[in-house]
Amino acid sequence: MGPEDLDKVLRLLPPGDMREEILVGLDTQDDAAVFQLDEETALVHTVDFFTPIVDDPYAYGQIAAANALSDVYAMGGVPLTAMNIVCFPCSLGMDVLAEILRGGLDKVRESGAVVIGGHTVDDEEPKYGLAVTGKVHPKRILTCKGAKAGDALVLTKPLGTGILSTALKGGFLEEEDLVEAICGMARLNRDASRAALDAGAHACTDVTGFGLLGHLLNMLPEQGLGCEIKVSSLPLYPRVEEMASMGMIPAGAYRNLDFLAGNAKFAPDVSDVGKYIVCDPQTSGGLLLAFSPEGLADFATCMAEGHDWFLIGEFLESEHPLIRVIG
């Protein structure tokens, strides 16, 4: 669902129960909920599932699991257990489902967690994902708020998975054209999360359905802080710009752009497709992190070689939560 619709629905509900053990709950735009057990331990809870975004069932399973696990990493947590959520048409063949689950299982194992159960529903369109429980030290939780003016904004995976999967669906691209994006989506945010904790990140979230700008807006408090990002410095998967300029822009990107309304200002040198690329809904996107200059240097050291990360902008003082996008 788009951010606007979700907002409308949540307004219809009574406010969530307040209990002091709830360290992160419904009242913030964070990626997962955190419930404190004792001085040393808090549980991180999250759930995410979606329809196939690639044809290869094993890759789909891996991506869905990496995506679900990412919410735990975005809170600075370590995943412990996972439960499968499966909607599947029996007509599609049980070997396909087995491949999806194998992809998910391999990814969960790679994270160090265990799959300990799940639930299946007969459904026309397949959907797969996981509910994940992790643990985090109550004093070492990463949340989406906490960035300060002067902080560097870092992203740890390229953008464009929504545009590419739309192009795949429309027959403009073949699955071979998405190899880099598939590898990127299947990659765990584990190492980036650990490095962010060690380097003392001020704030952290992961980029998913609301797009880069939507999740960046979640990092801004109601007043006092803005952010500037440079479109030309954004990492993109191959062929994203080309596909966007051919009209392969998912409806979600339009919704995300609408929702930003007054909170985003685009410089005249930002191209038409650039506006949609920064709003493109991502599947299993990278972490979005805020670092002080010293923290950024530590992060660069902590990120082992072969791990991508990109400096894409800077937090600035601003009366209103405003994202300035320059070309």
Binding site: G247, A251, Y254
Partner: peptide
Amino acid sequence: DNATARDNVTRFATS
């Protein structure tokens, strides 16, 4: 019948 399709079709034809 929707703005998304209008913009995407326009973009494609222009390209």
